[in-house]
Design a protein around this nucleic acid. Structure first.
Length: 270
DNA sequence: ACCCTCCTGTCA
DNA sequence: TGACAGGAGGGT
């Protein structure tokens, strides 16, 4: 469920809540999540919380000062919720799959569909997605043009490729293409210089705006504090099939690409 | 570019 | 009952 802006929201909140805290123990509720490396986390201190692609990544150091990385990928339905010792787990914790128990509370992984994944490694490269981070300075117009290259893949599907750009998912792919006024089925490598410029700006603008509003709750996203994201009311096309385009009034279309819904305005996006 | 799979829940 | 769901990896 969570894409870059939602994961960024969670990581920023957790950085304030748990940086400096020590891991007392791990409770793996869903055996699917068990892995031998998880044991390494015990007694480690969290030095930093960040986002890499769509993962919440914890940088930790063990008693010998060696660094360790824990990545939480929430996939479709996962939530990473901070539950301080002063509070009880509630209705938003119906599907607890794991707990990372710290000194003053626990990080609870709640995930109905059980797709979430935990990765522990001594090498940060193991938890770093291969794609370019679109909000970093290295994501320039030139870089985007290089990445697009000559590929004939439909642009919407290309935007979902984590080995090209890290962090864009199904909601923001549609929103970005609407903002850039480009049709989702256009071959990725066929954009003019002007369209490439619009796309580069739209990617950064849409993601930044969504972060500013703490992400999008379409049906079930909750941040680390259990609150919904505020970007939903700014969605211009996602989930609006049949409704009028906010820009021109034409009916928003829904189309399936790669077994996933794409929403776009047939008039504004050519 | 298509299909299916991993899961479970919700909605028409 | 069937379609669909913010993800991703596998196989044709």
């Amino acid at each position: 469920m969570p894409e870059l802006p939602e994961v960024e929201t969670i990581a920023r909140q957790l950085e304030l809540l748990v940086a400096g805290h020590r891991v007392r123990r791990l409770e793996i509720v869903d055996p699917k999540l068990a892995s031998p490396a998880l044991k390494l986390l015990r007694n480690c201190r969290i030095s930093q919380v960040m986002r890499l692609g769509k993962q919440v990544v914890f940088e930790l150091s063990d008693l010998k000062g060696r660094r360790l990385w824990l990545a939480v990928h929430l996939r479709m339905s996962g939530r990473l919720l901070w539950v301080p010792d002063t509070l009880k787990e509630g209705a938003e914790h119906r599907y607890v799959r794991a707990r990372i128990v710290l000194e003053r509370g626990a990080l609870v992984l709640d995930d109905p569909r059980r797709f979430a994944v935990l990765t522990v490694s001594r090498a940060v490269s193991d938890v770093t997605p291969p794609g370019v981070e679109p909000l970093r300075t290295e994501f320039t117009l030139r870089r985007l043009a290089e990445l697009l290259g000559e590929t004939r893949q439909p642009l919407k599907l290309w935007l979902l490729r984590q080995d090209r750009l890290a962090g864009i998912g199904n909601i923001y792919a549609s929103e970005i293409l609407f903002a850039a006024r480009i049709h989702p089925r256009r071959p990725a490598g066929s954009l003019s210089a002007e369209e490439t410029t619009r796309l580069q700006r739209a990617i950064r603008h849409v993601l930044r705006q969504a972060i500013a509003h703490c992400g999008t709750t379409f049906s079930e996203f909750l941040d680390a504090r259990g609150r919904e994201g505020g970007f939903g009311r700014f969605l211009k096309v996602y989930g609006r099939g049949g409704q009028p385009c906010l820009s021109c009034g034409a009916a928003i279309e829904r189309e399936v690409q790669g077994q996933r819904s794409t929403y776009f305005c047939p008039h504004c996006q050519r």
